[in-house]
């Protein structure tokens, strides 16, 4: 499903370049449940953003399914983000002026799905994360865990093949974290490939495979299955 080969990424800060990912080789098969760990600044988010086509890389190749993700046109990139990938952020990134249901329905708007169908599906996905009663609430009226569930519903509504989550529980207490993890495990059980960046060993322990990054290099790749 995901296939990286000698991927490099640097940030240029004035004169010196910061080499964040160094020759990363990585293959994740369809249906896997993977966590990525590593100390702060090791390049986890950078890697996940590249996987989510939110950022580009300097050299190497990245294949998502059969597609080579490289120098994509903007509309192509938008299409892959919309149809293949669901992304969950640590900071939720909900649109503050839209209700939970509207937030969840938004990706379908960009697919041209009619309004009524969009709203019906949004309610269905909100129900899946246990928030049907909160459909008409604005993000500001919800707790962190609730917001993250809305974000997950939004990521899933397009039936993506890959769900990428960058510290989805980073802003949540341990009990809420566990609920979110249960949800992600359910998602994975339904056949979606799930990649989670996390600092928490507890979270990583519930995934089937953990990739450890250190200064932009894959240091270890442990399979638990």
């Amino acid at each position: 499903m995901i296939h990286l080969e000698r991927v490099n990424k640097s940030y240029h800060l004035g004169h010196h370049a910061l080499h964040v990912l160094r020759n990363v080789d990585l293959t994740i098969e369809e249906g896997e449940l993977v966590s990525i760990m590593g100390s702060s600044g090791s390049g986890k988010s950078t890697l996940l953003n590249i996987l989510g086509i939110l950022d580009d890389y300097d050299s190497g190749t990245y294949r998502l399914g059969d597609a080579l993700i490289r120098d994509l046109s903007e509309s192509r990139a938008a299409q892959y983000r919309n149809r293949f990938i669901g992304f969950v952020f640590q900071s939720f990134n909900l649109l503050p002026f839209k209700t939970a249901a509207e937030n969840v329905a938004l990706p379908l708007f960009y697919q041209g799905v009619p309004r009524a169908r969009r709203n019906a599906l949004a309610l269905e996905y909100l129900a899946r994360v246990g928030l049907e009663a909160w459909a008409m609430h604005l993000p500001a009226e919800m707790s962190g865990g609730q917001k993250q569930r809305v974000a997950i519903a939004r990521a899933l509504i397009t039936k993506p093949r890959v769900l990428l989550a960058d510290e989805p529980t980073g802003a949540l207490d341990s009990k809420t974290s566990e609920q979110i993890m249960n949800l992600l495990i359910d998602v994975n059980a339904s056949g979606v490939t799930v990649v989670i960046v996390t600092h928490e060993p507890k979270v990583a322990a519930r995934t089937h495979r953990t990739i450890r990054l250190r200064d932009g290099v894959i240091e270890a790749d442990e399979d638990r299955a």
Partner: peptide, 15 residues
């Protein structure tokens, strides 16, 4: 930021 979110969800620049 709103534009970033919309793009992450699959909005084309044209949209």
């Amino acid at each position: 930021k709103e534009i970033g979110i919309r793009k992450a969800l699959g909005a084309t620049p044209w949209a």
